[in-house]
Design a binder for these strands. Structure first.
Lengths: 209, 209, 209, 209
DNA sequence: ACTTAACCGAGACGGTACGTCGTGTCTTGCC
DNA sequence: GGCAAGACACGACGTACCGTCTCGGTTAAGT
């Protein structure tokens, strides 16, 4: 669905040449993405309107539509531009401590104002394959790649079974957090991360015969 | 937000008396709920319009608005009216088998056409407290109540720790299913239920010292 | 368009017998007509709604529709029921005085709260033949019959030409009043009646050769 | 009530500059006014709907509401745009002939399809000050200005009294036409104009002492 | 310096759905 | 069988955004 030439981090023709004509306004681009995130946080995916984004960014509606074909693409880009930042996965020498820290980090994000944005994207993604794909590409996989490394270290240290299914394990660790985040049937506290981690990793130990 | 007197399963004044005037048309009510579910499955929460629901149900738009204040309330009711049915939780003598069956059941629902409806509700619920609350009340808690019983049997049989946190455990079992359902980063198969069950319950055994 | 059996002053079967069932409520009928006139004065023909009439009369909408097929018929009846009253046409011995008094009387009505009702009827009548016909039958002709008599007296007294066209003359006298009433381009005062009368009757004198 | 900047005959900013943004579509404007007149002729003021106007003009409903705040304003404008045309008041050397011709002209309009539009406006105007004011400004006064001139010529030729009240006289001439037009209690023929003219002007002659 | 071309803002355009209101019909139980 | 109450299907209301379009004006690179 996202078909426009270089909606994200593009810097013009790659071949050294420049296209003729007025170059794209970087200022407008950033104002649009910023407004998108703000309104996403305020009104959610469904409540956010392109019209409001353009208005708030002091930009013509045309300029938004010129670069993003639809709301989902815009939101995905805005989210991506915001998320390109640290994902700090320390190596403390213990899988449990490492994973617990990561999971606390995620919970912190979910409970912050950016949580609203994440939930808006997950909600919008239920009707838009591209949006949920963008979420996976920009948010889920980068983190999970780090988590794989953490798990691998755990295996080599003998804290986890050699043949453990890493995706199964990571879903077991993160799934409950997403569930509580989205369904809100129980509190989502840092402490929950610890206890969850303890429960699940206990089932992943080598000698649990 | 849901403020109209008895939008769900109401059967008129309880005190024997009847309200004056033409009674509410049961036929219209059912046609509306049915159309809602159909369109929800087709277009999702965001794509569904009240106008289309009314049209498909051969009903005046007014009649919809008379009984449901907004789309969320309508969808919640429709979902509720559909879900009041069996949740078969057998007692096979093994927590693992019992839970595994339940979880396979849920996966089956998620993969069926009704999965679309559930995801629509969870998506819509991110912008509507009442909708997500309705989901919990009509779908989550009834199932979870049964699951509590299953766990209790497991405890008394010595398959689970006495002091296990049941909500933590159930979230660990179901959370990953919801996560895969909503984010679609990995396949959601019946086999996943079994392996998930094995992993998590292993961490909940009494003597896992 | 007015097809219901006896919407106006009917008192049931004429043959002494009574129809079976509950007799028509005279109280409801009067309340409806009264409400109609009030709302007509407040909101005009277009702004008046049957729903409001029923509400104000503390009556079911059905009861209105049972007896009057549409708004025009109702308004016509209400107007008629109100207008059955004095049209005092004195014989002072002078056509000019007689006519002037009549015309002042009309202007007084037009400027009173009942003027609003008359204008509502004339407005509504532009889209409804029955309504304008009712206006003629109930309001125009009764007055005009009296006016004919006045003119005839004038003829026999030699104040008017023998062969004068009475309708032409009466339209010349009343038309300007209606015009100012409806178009409001100039003041409609009692004095206007006198001057109008003087002008027109001057042209109707016998010896204006 | 009519508050939009230049709904009528506006030709853009007068200071040479142009407002930014896409200019208003002259084609849409004319299509709307044309449709309005057509529907007004067909269904009258009350029966005409904005929705139908937009549909017939192949225009979005928004475009109508963007420029006209309500039905009355739209109708007034449509009527005005139609009426800006010839009002031929010849100078034959006789007030009576001149006036008679004008009056015949009016009767001709009233009896044509445009009569329906006039009656619709007069009807609608009973509930809308602006509408009736527009009628006066666009239709009544321009004609009357010409008529004043005709009368003035008559006075200077000695056909009319010097001190004649021109408005009284014109109302006496036109009022009966409007009355027959609106109440339809008698035929409105060209011949009526002549006889009316004869009667009233006879009362306006200088020496009728 | 002048042309060319793509960008920009503004805002009107034809539409769709909204949630409300009134229409005229109907379906109750009571009188 | 009339009555009040009020639900019903219908259709227009006036509003908010949609995504597209047409303007005048800006900004550089390529003459």
């Amino acid at each position: 669905m996202r078909q426009k030439p270089w909606p994200v981090g593009h810097r013009g023709k790659q071949d050294g040449k420049r296209a003729p004509g007025r170059p794209r306004s970087e200022q407008a681009r950033q104002a649009i993405l910023r407004s998108t995130l703000e309104l996403l946080g305020t009104s959610g995916f469904a409540g956010m309107t392109i019209e409001a984004v353009a208005m708030r960014a002091r930009v013509g509606k045309t300029t938004v539509y010129r670069w993003w074909p639809n709301k989902a693409a815009l939101v995905a880009d805005a989210f991506a531009s915001d998320t390109i930042r640290q994902l700090h996965f320390p190596d403390t020498g213990s899988v449990r401590t490492d994973m617990s820290r990561q999971m606390r980090q995620l919970i912190k994000i979910f409970r912050s104002s950016r949580g609203r944005i994440v939930s808006a994207i997950l909600a919008g993604g239920q009707n838009d394959k591209d949006l949920i794909a963008a979420f996976r590409a920009r948010f889920l996989w980068p983190r999970r790649r780090e988590a794989y490394a953490t798990l691998r270290r755990g295996i080599s240290r003998g804290e986890l079974r050699r043949n453990i299914d890493k995706d199964l394990l990571l879903d077991s660790l993160y799934g409950p957090i997403y569930m509580r985040f989205l369904i809100q049937h129980a509190q989502l506290t840092p402490r929950f991360a610890d206890r969850l981690c303890a429960l699940v990793l206990a089932g992943a130990r080598p000698h649990s015969k």
